[in-house]
Design a protein around this nucleic acid. Sequence first.
DNA 1: TAATTATAAACTGACCGTTGGTCTGTAAAA
DNA 2: TTTTACAGACCAACGGTCAGTTTATAATTA
Lengths: 208, 208
Amino acid sequence: MRRHKEPEVRKSELLDAAQKLFIEKGYAKTTVTDILNVHGLSKGVFYYYFKSKEEVMDAIIQRMVDDAVDNAKKIVANPDMTPPQKIYAILMGQGQTEEMIKDREDMAHEFHTADNAEMHQKSLVQSIKYLAPVMAEILQQDTDTFSTDFPQETVALFLAAGQFIFDEGLFQWSEEENTRYAIAFIQMIEKTLGVPSGYFSDLTKKFA
Amino acid sequence: MRRHKEPEVRKSELLDAAQKLFIEKGYAKTTVTDILNVHGLSKGVFYYYFKSKEEVMDAIIQRMVDDAVDNAKKIVANPDMTPPQKIYAILMGQGQTEEMIKDREDMAHEFHTADNAEMHQKSLVQSIKYLAPVMAEILQQDTDTFSTDFPQETVALFLAAGQFIFDEGLFQWSEEENTRYAIAFIQMIEKTLGVPSGYFSDLTKKFA
DNA sequence: TAATTATAAACTGACCGTTGGTCTGTAAAA
DNA sequence: TTTTACAGACCAACGGTCAGTTTATAATTA
């Protein structure tokens, strides 16, 4: 009765199931058996495709980061956006994959980061590694508007600060606090990049 | 033969042993039995003093953060330091307790943060919670030199960025990279706080 | 006051449930 | 027949529990 599936299909099934569970319950609290139960599979098949639970997490993070980088590259290539808009769009879209945004429209998905420290840390490290260079390009290609001595390093600092502070699971900011942090964040970016104050201000309305 | 000890002494023994192991091996990879073996104690005594392994981590973090806050308050009260020097001293002293610095002089202690995500995350969260207000006071008390709309939030962003980027376990920066990040970090702070460029520059030499 | 007993505090170690991971084997596909 | 995809019993290790033992302290008695 058991039907053998294409390896890639099975692997994707497992990855998708794992990702959903990791986000819902957290990495640590998600059992390998939990992942297998989603499609009624047995222990063996998991370790046929992956050599450890951690490898699955790494694969998921890689997928998410690749997505984010692709998205960022599209933004960079978009001729209808100004450089500041690009910076803003990439920074603010962080931590949310396209799929996650779609999902979020349906049900309220909380990225349970408190129980997800390992995953959160790894994904932040990878984000910085792969996303910072792409963003740094924007700054380097428009030295008229931006004045930064170390674009990549500066952008990395932005990513680290933003991803951490605005994480929904770590701090439960009130709406007011969130707004204050958002403004402070944007002002920090404006000042650091040397763009006039208010450059991003009209974009800030999204935080209302 | 078994000697009963003062509860506080025993508890400190366990906390100290745990802290050392958590730093050396990481929280996840440190066994409760490992902690007990340091002083040859049995399972029961651990759960006599703590109700879980996580509680021990929380206690250790609290101790570290309290230390850091005390230290920060002393710096704030120091009349021989200028406000920028205070900001600098607190930001750069982060993540290293006095004891850890002493230890580091003896043997090369690596805070194995890669295997320590949970602890690192929690301690960063607590740092921001308790340290940011203290630092914000410095900014508020010297509005002539500093111009920031949201002192506490801004400082929190600094802490998050700095603690993450300069973590020894997460990124293995070369000496050059480290210097670049340090300069970028300082420039970001200078620009964001509205102090003239080079305000911290003479302090930067420490990174050589 | 010294010896005895009662009570609580500090500690032991066998035990349990769960989990990540292994291994031998089997059914389906080629 | 060989290879690929899968099943599921099994294992070691870990966090945590618990009934019981030893040590210190207070209360009682002689």
